[in-house]
Amino acid sequence: MSEAAQLQQFEERIACGEKIEPGDWMPEKYRQQLIRMISQHAHSEIVGMLPEGAWITRAPNLRRKMVLLAKVQDEAGHGQYLYHAAETLGISREEMIDALLEGKAKYASVFNYPTLNWADNAIIGWLVDGAAIKNQTMLARCSYGPYSRAMVRICAEESFHMKQGKEMVIQYAQGTPMQRQMVQDALNRWWWPTLMMFGLPDSESYNSPQLIRWGIKTRTNDELRQEFVNELVPELLALGLTVPDPELCFDEESGNWIYGPIDWDEFWQVVKGNGPCNEERMTARRQAHEDGRWVREAMLAYAEKQEAGLAV
């Protein structure tokens, strides 16, 4: 079959809702786009453990500690699901991990911001995980089977992440003046980085049209961002919190909450490595990788000896 005929068949399969599975023919560009997206997504889950992980030893009570431990453990699991999905496209786990550690691979910029007080964990759960769910719910419908399945699994678990954060925000917003101040401070710092998570505006996002035609993305960055803002703002206001956007207003005609301009210069600065915690995050990742090296090597050596029947 000619490449044009294969491409036509491939696009027809996607158009009628069939999943593309490992082994099926796919355009090289589809494969490359998916490797890029899925590995970035996997790295984000892994690096995403760090901001909240720092608070596990300082949780205010045992329940919050167990919940936070479970959440951070889930993020590790999500990274595993996603590395698995990317591997089905022909890239090895070693290559992906090396790309991250050598600074060649990107991960979600939002994790390059610091967690300065306990309520940051509350706001991250509700806002950052909430924004991630918007994106992931869309990707659960994506045309590539392994990515879709990883997303279905992740969405089910992220729902717990968002709710545990929201529960804390509700509690602190109705709590003591100090608790209200703490959660407002966290909201002030995380609001804009969260909106940036949806990616560049549609007018500047060159990847989107093809990603949408091939069923990798099914909705645009701006659509998802607007839906998120519309859902979140009324609830934040009902809790007596202030959204740190002086231009935020409700548009009767469209039913949308119109937000002020996003500082894309800041976004690019953080992407380029100049965010508050880029260096710290990568140092922590490299350290963990190096510290674990002897374990990986020793266990493999043991397994190889066992297989060769040489172990005592």
């Binding site: 786990r93 070693e94 290559e95 991990i97 090296r293 990986r296 493999l300």
Partner: peptide, 12 residues
């Protein structure tokens, strides 16, 4: 690919 596999193992 072979370069990275000599430097690290992520196991089979």
């Amino acid at each position: 690919m072979s370069d990275s596999s000599t430097r690290d193992t992520q196991w089979p």
